[in-house]
Amino acid sequence: MIPGSQGWESRMDMPVPVIRLPRGPDGISRGFDLNSPRYQALGLKDYKELKQEQKARTVMREQYLRSLLAMVGQPVCFTMYEKVTVMACFGSADIDILNFQVSELQTPLGVQREALLRCPDIISYTFQLSPQHTGVQQELKEGC
């Protein structure tokens, strides 16, 4: 028992409204229904335009992720700020492309076996692609 709890109850003159949260996703969808009046009341984007935008987004993102995949194990030349250019063997990137994991990073002070490059420090990067690059990927997959 909390001492004086009765007194606290009697002091609550103003009733507190019960907040009803909107129904969540139903388990088979990926979010709130874009056709629902609730969503449309938000006045965000036209449903059709949103669909088109999502389509463009997925196609372009897939291509970009595939380009990262093709870069795995390749020597890549990174152009960074302050006119720094370094070579390294690309390993992987994190999901929001904030860091690149590379190996054999050739710095002016020597070769760093493993390193993380912060993407905000990079201006651009370049790599070569041979015609059989997809075959290289296959070998890598089998090697793993």
């Binding site: 372009m60 993102r61 970009y64 380009s67 651009s124 790599f127 070569q128 015609p131």
Partner: peptide, 24 residues
Amino acid sequence: TVDPVTANIVLVNFLEDSKMSVTV
């Protein structure tokens, strides 16, 4: 392509003997 998350632009240049150079 352009990565919709980071706005990175992927540029491709076709070189001789069907090699390609990719700059992002």
